[in-house]
Nucleic acid binder design. Structure first.
Lengths: 200, 200
DNA sequence: TAGATGTGCTAACGCCTGTTTGCTTTTATT
DNA sequence: AATAAAAGCAAACAGGCGTTAGCACATCTA
């Protein structure tokens, strides 16, 4: 039988997670209280527990959803037949687009994962390490093939990843350029910065 | 007779601020309790209040000390007779060195200032805006003089500033390259990324 | 219609928070 | 040695925290 609810087709838990993402991003995980969250959902704090197990669970769901998202894309890129520069550009563009169109959750996943509890904390740490190592490997591959100038790969990785985090400032900016233009500017600056010039 | 002391001569307060910087960096401002801090100082929580007025005051002192530090340097650079690229490189190197040698406080000043209370919060917001505008002006000047490729200046600013924030990862890294090498790598990648190539 | 299920509420719990009070001990100055 | 100031402590406060218990209602299922 078709279960058609009419007004309430979106489950309550989804709404809670979305609101939680916004608040965690805005004020941080620890500075966001359950009563705070409840008010934004339009409900009393106690009622939240009909849908979620704990405040921690909210952070876990947000962080691991984001992490899986990035990890899945990374695996596709790694097995693709792009050049090293092409792979980096693909990763860069994916990050930028995620930051542009999935802002709240991505931001929380990036900045608030430290407040996860074990064993999720260790799990996240290792996922992030693996992710960075993937990028470093691509860079080192590019260097050995002469596509990329001779730089320290881990340094290039941290520059790339953190530069993208700066899109946060763009979101808050008043006179912002379009997302497409932002993407092109970032890609140009970052990719040109590591490309081999033939001179060096 | 003469009260030479004021509230400044006490080194105890310095210790408290240093430990607070470490804890705020490690766990975040909200996740650091005064009892936590007291334990690291080697004292009971109540005793802290013989040296400081409030937890908030700690965050204020850290944030504004760092901000003044950067602002002072910025003003020196702005009035210098360097080229635009030269100015950017000077700013970049200053940031990197601060991040390397004054890590805890700089990190807190960068990531935890959101938890300041008014009027300090507004003050900090405007200081940061002014700082970014200074950099943007330098970039635009460089573009108009043909030193820098035609990019969106605010975008370049956010890339620069956030890329530096990535040194956080470097600090935690196990097999890290030397600070000098890190600096050279970062400068090379970032500066080359925005330099005019003559082709474009 | 009867029961089950989902969702909401009020009230409360135990714990932790930043901070104050009142008192004692250490340290520095005369 | 006497005295004043600085620095420490235990105890407590009021308020906020995440969370639970118990109950009420509404909706869906049989």
């Amino acid at each position: 039988m078709a279960k058609i609810k009419g007004t309430k087709n979106s489950p309550r838990k989804e709404v809670i997670i979305i609101k939680a993402s916004q608040l965690f991003r805005e004020k941080g995980f620890n500075a966001t209280s359950m009563r705070d969250l409840a008010e934004h959902v339009g409900v009393e704090a106690a009622s939240l527990y009909n849908h979620i197990k704990s405040k921690s669970e909210l952070l876990q769901e947000i962080c691991f959803k984001v992490a899986n998202n990035f990890m899945t894309h990374m695996e596709e890129v790694v097995i693709s037949d792009r050049t090293a520069i092409g792979k980096l550009e693909a990763i860069l563009r994916f990050h930028i687009n995620q930051m542009l169109h999935n802002y709240e959750e991505v931001y929380v996943g990036d900045r608030e994962w430290k407040h996860l509890t074990e064993p999720y904390l260790s799990n996240m740490r290792s996922q992030r390490r693996i992710y960075r190592q993937h990028i470093a490997s691509i860079i080192e591959d590019g260097i050995s093939k002469g596509e990329i100038k001779k730089i320290d790969a881990p340094t290039a990785v941290l520059i790339m990843l953190h530069a993208i985090g700066g899109i946060e400032s763009w979101h808050r900016s008043q006179q912002k350029i379009s997302g497409e233009l932002l993407e092109e500017n970032m890609v140009m600056i970052m990719i040109e910065g590591i490309k081999a010039t033939g001179i060096l």
